[in-house]
Amino acid sequence: MWDSFYKALVFQDRWTWYLEGLGKTLLISIGAIAIGVLLGIIVALIKYINKKFGNFKVGAKICDVYLTIFRGTPVYVQLLIMYLIVLVFLPTVWVAIITFGINSGAYVAEIIRGGLESVDDGQIEAGRALGLNKLQVMIKIVLPQGFKVALPPLFNEFIALVKETSIVGTIGEVDLTKVAARIVARTYEPFVPYIMIALMYLIVVIILTKLLRLMERRLAKNERHRDKR
């Protein structure tokens, strides 16, 4: 047992490999989340404003095509296409960040759009009837409420994304999963490395979940408070 631990962690300072792999996983995840959120917000706003106010007709069509393609094909296939055909001139880590970012953006867009659409039309009408313009109604009424509704599914998407990045080994990026595979290839003892990285993924996801709880609690102030039974 001790021998397995020694070979998986201590020998050749292999514990530092895990940290490097974790760093790569986090780098790709955070980069992709940043791109995904930015892209998702833009797409969601275009589609929402098109539906509610009739602006951006062409933009909404383009967004639909984007959503169909990136939600309709496996991210694994998208990664291979980007790496081997579209983004051949970029370093692989960038290929990974961009691919996961664009893929995630499609899901984030639908999540945020759902959040925005959960705000009832009556409140928009009330705002407009008071003389506020579309932009003021969006910023003061729709976005704060829509964002709150979108938050839990948004974090679900982030969690899924962190785990999905485990396939970047395919295009030669050494992330957490690839590190474990490399060590197992040297030691032929899969137990410690794979349990090890499973725990590391788990910790990242738990941190994300805690972050969500924290944000939800801060945003819950306008809900009805009931004593727990």
């Binding site: 009832d120 009556g122 409140q123 009408e125 009330a126 705002g127 407009r128 009837a129 008071l130 003389g131 506020l132 313009n133 003061k140 009424i141 704060p144 409420q145 709150k148 306008n222």
Partner: peptide, 22 residues
């Protein structure tokens, strides 16, 4: 129209208060 609506108050069947505001 936005300027004009400032002079026309409207009350709705379902109140339509802004839920995110006090």
């Amino acid at each position: 129209i936005d300027k004009t609506r400032q002079k026309i108050g409207m009350v709705f069947q379902h109140f339509n208060l802004f839920n995110n505001l006090t």
